[in-house]
Design a protein around this nucleic acid. Sequence first.
DNA 1: ATGATTGTTAACGACTTGTTAAACCCATAG
DNA 2: CTATGGGTTTAACAAGTCGTTAACAATCAT
Lengths: 226, 226
Amino acid sequence: MNRILLAEDDENLAFMLQDSLCELGYEVQVESTGVAALALFESKAFDLCLFDVMMPEMDGFSLAQKIREKDTQIPILFLTARSLEDDKLKGFASGADDYITKPFSIKELSCRISVFLKRTASQKTKSKELICFGDSTYDPENLCYSHAGQTYFLTDIEAQLLQLLIQNQGNTLRREIILKEIWGTDDYFKGRSLDVFIARLRKYIKVDLRLSIKNHHGVGFSLRIS
Amino acid sequence: MNRILLAEDDENLAFMLQDSLCELGYEVQVESTGVAALALFESKAFDLCLFDVMMPEMDGFSLAQKIREKDTQIPILFLTARSLEDDKLKGFASGADDYITKPFSIKELSCRISVFLKRTASQKTKSKELICFGDSTYDPENLCYSHAGQTYFLTDIEAQLLQLLIQNQGNTLRREIILKEIWGTDDYFKGRSLDVFIARLRKYIKVDLRLSIKNHHGVGFSLRIS
DNA sequence: ATGATTGTTAACGACTTGTTAAACCCATAG
DNA sequence: CTATGGGTTTAACAAGTCGTTAACAATCAT
C-alpha cells in the first residue's frame, strides 16, 4: 500500500483525486496548504508527493524545496493549470520529478505516479539471501538470527529493525528515519517502543562479542562490527 | 559522463538533439531505426534511452518493450508529435518513464532527462563523502572526527561548529556569525557556550599536529591547517 | 595596570536512553 | 463467547548524556 501526500487547495479537485487514487489502491492524505503538508510530511512516512503549484501560504515550489532538504529520494510530482515553459523549469529546479498540466486524465496521472513508485520500490526490494555480519547470520526469509549454533526467532518488528541496522552497518541511523521506516510515524511513544526493541536486539546479539549497537545521543543508533 | 541512446528517424531532429545534448555534457549515440537501436543497446552500455514513437521497422513502443525485457532499470523517455491520450497510456504500458510531446524545449528535455539520471545515479552512490582536512577526516553523516585510527563521535553542536570551521578553513569566522548560525541568537551566555565548545574541539583535534583553532581577539575563530 | 575577552574545568538541570514489567491488542482455540 | 498466548505499546523508574552556567585563571588591548 503506497502512501501519497496530496497538497491541493481546491477542495473539489482534492476530493476527486483522493477518491480516484484510493480506488487505484493508494492511501491518500490531503492537506490544503503547503504549511500543513510540510508538517504532515515530517510526522508520517509517504512514498510520493503530489503538489499543486498554486496554493495559499506556501506555493508548491517552496514546499518541494523544503521537502527535498529532508528527503532527496521521494518522488515529487507537480500539478498545474499552466503549461508555461518557465514554470516547468522552475518546478524541476525546485526538485520536482514530473510536471502534469491540467486538464489531465486520472489514467495518465496514475501512469506517471506508478513510474516513480516502481523505481523507488525496486530500490527497497530486499534480497532474501542469508546475511552474514560479524560472526553471526541473519535469515530474512525465516526472520531468525544465529550465532555459533544458537538461533533466535525474531518478531516482525525486531526483524525489520535488525535488517535496517545491518543494511546501514557502521553508519548512524537517525531515530526519525527508523521510526518513519518501521512505524510510519514519529511520535513520543513510538520512540519509546524503538528503545525497547533496541534493548531486545542487544540481548540477542550480545552472544556475538564482535557486535554492538551504539547509541548516538539525540541522533540515533548504529550497528558496530569490530 | 552519461550515455544516451537516441532512436530518431528524422535526421534533422536527431542531429539537433545530439548536438544540444552533447553540449550539456551527455554522450549521445543515434540510430535511425528501432532495430538498429536495439542492436546497439545490446552491444554497449547506456544510462538512458530516448526514443521517437514513430519510426520505420519497429516503433518506439515495441522497442521499449524489447529493452525492458533485458533491463528493467534503465530510464526510457518517449518523444512524440502527438499528445493523444491513448498514445501516452500505450507508452507507459510498454515500459516508458516519461513522455515528451513535440514541440519541446531542450531545457525541458534536459530537466526530464536529469530527473531520471539522478535517480539511477543515486542508487549507485549512497553515502555522503568524507571531508578531509589536515591529516584528519570528518564524516558529516555519522558526526565523527577521525585521525590516525582514533575516532571521536561528536555531539550535534560540536559537529555543527566543526563543520562551520572546516568550511571556512583559514578564514576568521566572526563570533556573531557562528552564534547566529548555530544558536540562532547572540547573547552573552551563548557566547560563553561557544567558548566551551571551542575548547572541546581543540581537545579533539590536538591529536592532529597540523590543526589548530586560533582566536582573533574580539572577532572570532579560525581553523588553521599547516 | 585595568577592564574586557577568552581558556578551562566542573557542576547542575533538562532531556534522552536503558531496562523491566504491566497493560493492551488481536488472533486463534476451546 | 471467553480464555489463552504471542507480540507490541505504555508506564515507571534508573542511568546516562549534553548544553548551559558559573567560577576562576589566563591573556589581550589600551
